[in-house]
């Protein structure tokens, strides 16, 4: 690091991804530049096929970048690591472990069993599941499972929390409750959150900043700072205005996808 250079938190530089099969190459996106500041809640919003989930997987280290670099606090990301906690659309919990043991899973070897359990209890309280710590996963509802997944990711004390459409599989009612809880957790833990969604409303409700992606090829088409005071009700005029603005941005992109799918 040179003198005078600003230490960036999460930095994506000229990132591109191309999938190669035996017959053809498919470029998902290229030349993605993104700087994310610490403690921010940033959403990546875009239609299906724009590569937003792939981009998140690359930050997680689950996918390799075909071009460009991703770095967290100056160190390059190549593989997954506990400095980046991930919450998937499917809760992806371990059914052979009870709720508490799921949360202590990443802590094994890093602290004593007792410390890990205390740690887990703290985060279980945060997601309001203290009563269920002895339960097995199949005994929980979808919303409760996703809360366990959030607690598990937070328990590793990651620098950044990556969320890949985490509430996409939940019913509307539960989703609203989860939004409020996530806001509380975010304010309490001060984590940097990178949140992938295709719901405009969800992005506006939660984010400090919305990165809008277009598709075919995937690219960033807008980068919007949201400074509407929280909590943001759906009936709030500023929310409605922003929703319209993003909708018109995405309309062309969504039509592109529809046209392509209909022609096939």
């Amino acid at each position: 690091m040179n003198e005078g250079e600003v230490l960036l938190f999460l930095q994506l530089k000229q990132v591109g991804k191309t999938f190669t099969t035996e017959e053809k190459q498919f470029q998902v996106f290229s030349n993605i530049d993104l700087d994310i500041t610490e403690n921010q809640f940033v959403s990546i919003l875009g239609p299906s096929g724009c590569g937003k989930s792939t981009l998140l997987s690359m930050v997680a280290g689950l996918e390799e970048a075909s071009e460009g670099t991703i770095s967290l606090e100056g160190s390059l990301i190549k593989t997954p690591g506990p400095d980046r906690g991930m919450v998937f659309q499917q809760p992806s919990l371990f059914p052979w472990l009870n709720v508490r043991d799921n949360i202590t899973f990443p802590l094994k070897g890093k602290m004593t069993k007792q410390e890990a359990n205390d740690h887990a209890d703290h985060f279980l309280k945060m997601v309001q599941l203290s009563r269920f710590k002895e339960n097995y996963i199949f005994e929980l509802s979808g919303g409760m499972q996703q809360r366990v997944a959030i607690a598990r990711a937070l328990a590793m004390d990651p620098k950044v929390l990556l969320m890949d459409e985490p509430f996409g599989a939940l019913d509307e009612q539960t989703r609203h409750i989860m939004h409020d809880e996530l806001m509380k957790i975010w304010q309490e833990t001060q984590k940097t959150i990178l949140f992938v969604t295709h719901s405009i409303n969800e992005a506006i409700k939660l984010s400090d900043r919305i990165v809008v992606m277009g598709t075919r090829p995937g690219r960033i088409i807008a980068d919007i700072n949201v400074d509407i005071p929280r909590p943001r009700e759906r009936s709030n005029l500023e929310v409605i205005e922003l929703e319209k603005e993003i909708m018109s941005l995405l309309e062309g992109e969504i039509n592109k996808v529809l046209k392509e799918e209909l022609n096939q």
Binding site: L62, P82, S92, L162
Partner: peptide, 13 residues
Amino acid sequence: PQLTRAARTMGTK
């Protein structure tokens, strides 16, 4: 595969 992916994000390999 989602279980192995989840485990990998927790640094298990």
